[in-house]
Design a protein around this nucleic acid. Structure first.
Length: 517
RNA sequence: CGGGGCAUAGCUCAAUUGGCAGAGCGCUUGGUUCGGGACCAAGAGGUUCUGAGUUCAAAUCUCAGUGCCCCGACCA
């Protein structure tokens, strides 16, 4: 109970999650945003239509970027024979504690109950994939013979199961949806380039579609993916100052090709093991979206990810007005659609307009258009934005007023697109400002302690410790080393040499320490 | 998997010492309403998580089980 939002982000800014209990706030946003709920099935969640619509847009945007970088989609089995796991030891032990295993294939009735038929036990248990490296590489063995077969650039959209003990909607559930790319290359250089390229695809998506600023970096050896030579990641800061890993891209070296025995003949006619990468992002991204942008009114969606970008609310007192405003609403709807904007008309009768405002705000719709008799009379439209960037010294009332604007009809219609674009930009800008304001370069353990006691955020520290030092640091501050940022990501004072905060040794390596989800 | 808490209408929760199963919200129907969460009236909705025990009597007490939430360990 000490990871609250006091400090940097205060509720007077209207951007901050209602105070005391960030996780309660999070659940509230998920619920009122109509995104997902826990199902009765242990650790699993139901993604509701609105939440799934967001995922579909994410899929579309990501898939487009994968195709642009030369990848194709395929699909591999859900079940992995247990023996496949024993081929890569580190990988197997990394996932050993969280696997669901199928051992039987039949049910039968006994005393009015349905039981697992003990006679149907499988000769070899099947592991429900926690990730697909092993089964995909078993397949690649028969696909690769020559350097001419490379590179193999394949992605799959799938569900995976990791038997986590503490589920949290979108952030950590027993089953989740994701994409996993698995590529094979003829040289180390090319594979490394691929790993970096895909990390950049993720970073670009996070920042330019999700409006979530990220730090690109390497994981420390202790945090590396099981079986990887190097793990690259993007880390984002949530509104409470905690970090969330949004995506990873692994350089696997020849580990998996050796364990699956995938060799190719190179141009010189020599037999060589292929070089591999894998990379993935999951529905956790939706959790990141929620925790980055939303406020006490509920979800805020960046326009590029909003299944509904504009909601039209007609206002009327009687049948005559109803007919008129609905007619105008439909005309406006058609014009927005012709602009390629995703718009919808809320023509439900019997609900007060105000009730609809609250509902669509909680669902994160970026822009609302109110159409009443007065607008029709004046030939105007009322645009109400879900989010505007706050100005210095602005009162909440001013802010609320500024969210609404009344414009002549034609002007309003041509303002919609620019407003959406501005909102997209400003959401990123606000998140970036928060991230910067809570990122601090720190060079003593005392200061580090103060920093986390005061609410925390990203601490940039010089680090030369090993995995054991890392564990000790984690225990002491209840934080982890999130990543070793690429040099370009660092502010000037964090570049170059400095004393390791833990061992005192001189080092040029700077890391981010933070509490994490 | 370890520590703590909770489980009653769709949701949030009441129910005094063990004594008739309740409210608000939501839902249905009708009417009046509609520029920031409307109002009135009528109505539907329950195996009080499951199983056993104590008792004249259990939502309430006891035991066991299950599920959920919070904290740790683990994690995309």
């Amino acid at each position: 109970m000490n990871s609250q939002t006091k400090g940097a982000a205060s509720s007077k800014e209207g951007i901050t999650p209602r105070s005391k209990d960030y996780s309660q706030w999070y659940l509230d946003v998920v619920k009122r945003g109509d995104l997902a709920e826990h199902s009765g099935v242990r650790g699993c969640m139901v993604i509701k239509p609105h939440g799934y619509a967001i995922w579909e847009i994410m899929q579309k945007e990501l898939d487009f970027r994968f195709k642009e970088t030369g990848h194709v989609n395929a699909y591999f089995p859900l079940f992995i024979p247990l023996s496949y796991f024993s081929r890569e030891e580190k990988h197997a032990s990394g996932f050993a504690k969280e696997c669901a295993v199928v051992t039987h294939h039949r049910l039968k009735s006994k005393d009015g109950e349905v039981i697992v038929d003990p006679e149907s036990e499988l000769e070899e248990p099947l592991v429900v994939r926690p990730t697909s490296e092993t089964i995909i590489w078993a397949q690649y063995k028969s696909w690769v013979e020559s350097y001419r077969d490379l590179p193999l650039l394949i992605n799959q959209w799938a569900n995976v199961v990791r038997w986590e003990m503490r589920p949290r909607l979108f952030l950590r559930t027993a089953e989740f949806l994701w994409q996993e790319g698995h590529t094979a290359h003829s040289t180390e250089k090319e594979a490394l380039e691929e790993a970096f390229r895909m990390l950049e695809v993720y970073a670009d998506f996070a920042e330019n579609v999700m409006a979530v600023p990220v730090i690109r970096g390497h994981k420390t050896p202790g945090e590396r993916f099981a079986g990887a030579v190097d793990t690259l990641c993007i880390e984002a800061m949530m509104q409470d100052g905690k970090a969330l890993q949004m995506g990873t891209s692994h350089y696997l070296g020849q580990n998996f090709s050796k364990s699956a025995d995938v060799k190719f003949l190179n141009k010189e006619g020599k037999l060589e093991y292929v070089y591999a990468t894998s990379w993935g992002v999951s529905t956790r991204l939706i959790g990141a979206l929620i925790m980055t942008h939303s406020d006490d009114q509920g979800l805020i969606l960046p326009p590029k990810l909003a299944p509904i970008q504009v909601i039209i609310i007609p206002i009327y007192k009687n049948d005559e007005e109803r007919a008129k405003t609905l007619e105008e609403s439909r005309a406006v709807l058609a014009e927005l659609k012709s602009q390629g904007i995703s718009a919808r008309l809320d023509d439900r009768d019997g609900l007060m307009p105000g009730a609809k405002y609250y509902e669509w705000e909680a669902k994160g719709v970026p822009l609302r258009i109110e159409i009443g008799p007065k607008d029709i009379e004046k030939g105007s439209l009322c645009l109400a934005r879900r989010f505007v960037l706050e100005e210095a010294n602005e009162t909440p009332e001013d802010l609320r007023r500024r969210r609404k604007s009344f414009l002549p009809r034609a002007e309003a219609l041509s303002a919609v697109k620019p407003i959406l674009e501005t909102m997209q930009k400003e959401l990123l800008q606000r998140a970036r400002t928060l991230q910067k304001s809570r990122t601090q370069f720190i060079n003593s353990l005392d200061e580090l302690e103060k920093f986390f006691k005061a609410g925390g955020g990203f601490a940039l520290v010089h680090w030369a410790g090993d995995t054991q030092d890392e564990e000790a640091l984690s225990k002491r501050f209840e934080t982890t080393i999130r990543c070793i940022p690429f040099v370009e990501e660092l502010p000037p004072q964090a570049r170059g040499e400095g004393k390791c905060i833990w061992t005192g040794r001189l080092t040029s390596q700077c890391v981010i320490v933070a509490a994490a989800y």
